[in-house]
Computed example of a mutant assay.
Amino acid sequence: MCIFLIADIKITNDEWVPTYAENAHKIVHKHGGRYLSRSGNITTVEGEDLCTSLIAIIEFPSMQHFENFFNDPEYATYAKARQAGSKSRFHIIDNSDIAGTIEYLPAS
């Protein structure tokens, strides 16, 4: 079952961004992932605005593929820089339907 990483990032120091942006996607691809979006064009339409600077949505073929990416020693340097220069929230969701009423999604 494929999974999606939703990375919600509030940049606090942007020094890390150019190097991260240039290199992280290569490591994502190395582990079978693909970006569906990486955008700073964010509009909060309901709820508290978290002042997010960037949201990336990345699809991985499985949780194992994501874990291989996230734990890749090559990614560690970029992850540390991101963590030092941002407040990041990473969420993982699968492609299931919790209500089980959407026929093209597996029931969760």
Rank of each mutant, 00 (worst) to 15 (best):
T43E: 13
A56K: 06
I42H: 09
N68A: 10
I55Y: 00
E46A: 14
I57P: 01
I57L: 12
Y78M: 06
A81L: 06
Y75Q: 04
E74N: 12
N71H: 14
M63C: 07
E46N: 12
E48W: 09
I58S: 03
A76W: 01
I57Q: 06
A81R: 01
Q64R: 10
Q64A: 13
E67C: 08
F60H: 04
T44E: 05
N41P: 01
D49S: 09
E74H: 08
N71D: 12
F70G: 06
G40H: 02
G40I: 05
Y75S: 02
I58F: 00
R38G: 09
T43C: 12
A79W: 10
S39E: 07
A79C: 14
N68D: 14
N68M: 04
A81E: 05
P73C: 04
E74S: 11
F69Q: 07
S37T: 15
I58E: 00
A56I: 03
D72P: 02
D49A: 10
M63K: 12
T44Q: 09
Q64K: 14
N71Q: 13
D72R: 00
A81N: 04
T77D: 08
P73S: 04
F60G: 00
K80T: 14
A76Q: 11
G47F: 01
D49V: 07
V45D: 00
S62T: 08
N71E: 10
Y78H: 12
C51V: 11
C51R: 11
T77H: 09
Y75D: 00
M63T: 11
T44R: 09
P73D: 01
T77G: 09
D72H: 02
P73L: 02
N71C: 08
L54Q: 06
R38S: 13
D72W: 05
F70Q: 06
